[in-house]
């Protein structure tokens, strides 16, 4: 604070008429030559991210190919036809691209486990790897896991766009509603780029 007070005192000298002087280093000017701005061309490309083709979660012994998923007629997300495969919702970002990529998998079939039977067991720090069609791999670490009623599914938190390169893994959980033939909850693992 005392330094600031001292600087204020110095500033009064400026009011009294001490103006700044021009410095000696020559500005890096090329006024006499060609202007580099004359040949400027704007970028017309950007770095794209390839489609996801495989997911691996070593801690859960998950290793599956990934298929593309769209929307059903009722507006809900499609799910993989096989309980042994994961699916990527292709209406959103690709894993590793800016934004939330969403991969879904079944918790079970009618008589056995599905690929995400143990998704509820992941913890903060669990590694998720997603291979892409160009041979690259995007690596994520789980940040949190939650279980929510499907009637209160957090569409915003799972799907809504931001520019953070994140991943969401979705499966079923909770109690099974025999009348409807479906689980009442979804288990959601949130992961961020590692």
């Amino acid at each position: 604070m005392h330094r600031f007070a001292a600087l204020l005192v110095v500033a009064l000298a400026l009011v009294a008429g001490c103006g700044p002087e021009k410095n000696t280093p020559a500005p890096p000017s090329s006024a006499a030559g060609a202007n580099p701005a004359d040949s400027f061309e704007s970028s017309t490309t950007y770095e794209t991210v390839a489609r996801p083709v495989r997911i691996r979660i070593p801690a859960l012994e998950v290793d599956s190919k990934i298929i593309d998923l769209g929307l059903r007629k009722d507006g809900s997300v499609e799910v993989p036809p096989s309980v042994a495969e994961a699916g990527w919702w292709d209406g959103g970002p690709r894993p590793g691209q800016d934004g939330p990529a969403v991969i879904l998998g079944h918790v079970d079939s009618s008589d056995g486990p599905g690929i995400f039977i143990n998704l509820h067991k992941v913890r903060a720090g669990t590694v998720v790897e997603v291979d892409r069609a160009d041979g690259s791999t995007a690596t994520f670490k789980v940040t949190k896991v939650s279980r929510v009623a499907k009637t209160r599914f957090p569409t915003d938190l799972v799907y809504a766009p931001s520019l953070d390169p994140t991943l969401r893994l979705v499966t079923c959980g909770g109690s099974f509603d025999q009348a409807r033939g479906s689980y009442r909850d979804n288990v959601i693992a949130y992961a961020a780029a590692a």
């Binding site: 009722d74 809504a160 109690s175 689980y183």
Partner: peptide, 25 residues
Amino acid sequence: GRAVAERLPKGGAQTGFGGMAGIVE
């Protein structure tokens, strides 16, 4: 954000058939 929200999936995902309900529950 609002425009993108219009095309997002609605509701939860039907990712289970109940065969392991005893364990899942």
